[in-house]
Design a protein around this nucleic acid. Structure first.
Lengths: 265, 265
DNA sequence: ACATATGTACGTATGACATACATAGTTTTA
DNA sequence: TAAAACTATGTATGTCATACGTACATATGT
């Protein structure tokens, strides 16, 4: 990938590229190709054929340019991926009124989740450092808003935001990989059910008692989401995989801020 | 990477390889090379020089064999990575008594976190499907145990386990990438502080009000972890990045199970 | 207006890499 | 003891990121 030894993410370059300060008024011919057009093409390719189909040659071919022309606008593939990740993230949702912080957070979570369904390959782009792209920062900011409003301190809000982001990413990762239902190029179905069956043969109740118990219970039909008991869930409907965990977390946040308000500030 | 079109994770192969059912007593010469030796070498390489240094040629060279010999024992690099991920995960910690579920979960989280510090490259191995390796399953089982004991239903425990796994992975990912402090091959320091400074210049309070506020507060010295007020934290010390989120989540779990016990079963 | 510095686009070249394929040698089983 | 089945090796192929050199365009300073 990178030529240099330690593969250090090139912060400065990242920034100038991500923030698109392409100063106009230089010499030479007008560039027809731009970083944005390249990123757009890359996203199109990844959406259509997956991240492994995303090569510099492919991008160039799709745009009708020679491979090396790309490098006049983007210094390396690593950096291209960074730009692509930011562009594909898009703008965060507008969270209406932040007075109901649960609703706001749940909406944010749901939208991010949806984004990962639309661009599953986003989950495979290596994360090289703290987000620095304008869209990534906007997403973070939008999440911090309701968290701060709910009464969290700065550091707490940052931790909570990281927590939520990680949960969505992680859950989406597994969910996407499971649900891909593999368009079975070779004939085998390989769906979720098949995996479950193959697994149950491996899960020896002696070695994995808890896991076996969970599997047994779920085979018996005790699935999540059927039990919508827990009071007001905030209006926004979340995917079942996320709902329980996020709700518990928000419960914990609420009791925390409640205790804080009663005690000190 | 894979030759086939859809890049379907080869479930059957994964399983037989991961579960090491290498039946002995076949013809031909005894294999000196084994999947396990290969995996060990791979881990050594990744620990020393990072995942990008992990090539089939490098493994073969380190072991003193020709490149293609590797393929007699492992059908593809993708599969090798799967095996490596399971082997490197190692056995999960023993969680002493599960009567204190908070302590148990926190211990589990701390150990997983430590593992990611030891093998940061584990975070970059693409996750192709639900864990199926023996170690991965053992980790999952160990986490499910205290969760079930705490009174969660099967589906809830699974969701909580996924939630916690995702949080640790996600947080470790960012933490690792930030703290790498880039041994600055080219002279630039590029540490956490530098990134923070570079960021603050970008963060326009108008565009990112919440983010700016958090940055300002943290620049003023309001850091997390100083405020160890929140009562019994469970004994086990967790990294600051994780502590707050995990504790809030566990709080939520506790109130959930408490409400459940009071209400129904 | 003109010369030049500075870009852009392109072709070719290089060096990694994963992996197919054919071959030669080694045991174990029939 | 012969053949079947497996191991290790060498060579070959195709893909990839990317360095480097060249031809050309154009905005800027004279």
């Amino acid at each position: 990938m990178t030529t240099r030894d330690g593969k250090g993410p090139d912060l400065e370059r990242s920034l100038t590229l991500l923030w698109a300060g392409r100063a106009r008024g230089r010499r030479g011919p007008r560039a027809q190709l731009t970083a944005e057009r390249i990123a757009d093409a890359a996203i199109r390719i990844a959406d259509a054929d997956g991240l492994e189909a995303l090569s510099m040659q492919r991008i160039a071919a799709d745009l009708g340019y020679s491979t090396m022309s790309i490098y006049n606008h983007i210094p390396s593939k690593d950096l291209l991926l960074e730009v692509v990740a930011d562009v594909a993230a898009g703008k965060p949702p507008e969270l209406g009124g932040t007075e109901d912080f649960r609703r706001a957070v749940r909406h944010w979570v749901g939208t991010l989740w949806a984004g990962f369904q639309t661009h599953p390959w986003l989950l495979r782009i290596p994360l090289d450092h703290t987000p620095v792209g304008p869209n990534q920062l906007a997403w973070l900011d939008r999440l911090l808003q309701p968290l701060l409003k709910a009464g969290l301190a700065a550091g707490e809000a940052r931790a909570a935001a990281l927590h939520l982001t990680a949960v969505v990413r992680g859950t989406a990762q597994i969910s996407v990989d499971m649900g891909s239902a593999r368009r079975s190029d070779d004939g085998r179905p390989r769906n979720e059910a098949e995996l479950a069956k193959a697994l149950s043969e491996l899960i020896d109740p002696h070695d994995y008692p808890a896991l076996a118990a969970v599997h047994a219970a779920e085979a018996a039909g005790n699935h999540l989401g059927d039990e919508q008991a827990g009071g007001e869930t905030g209006g926004e409907t979340l995917p079942a995989e996320l709902s329980f965990g996020v709700d518990r977390f928000l419960d914990g946040i609420e009791t925390w801020t409640a205790a804080k308000t009663r005690g000190g500030g």
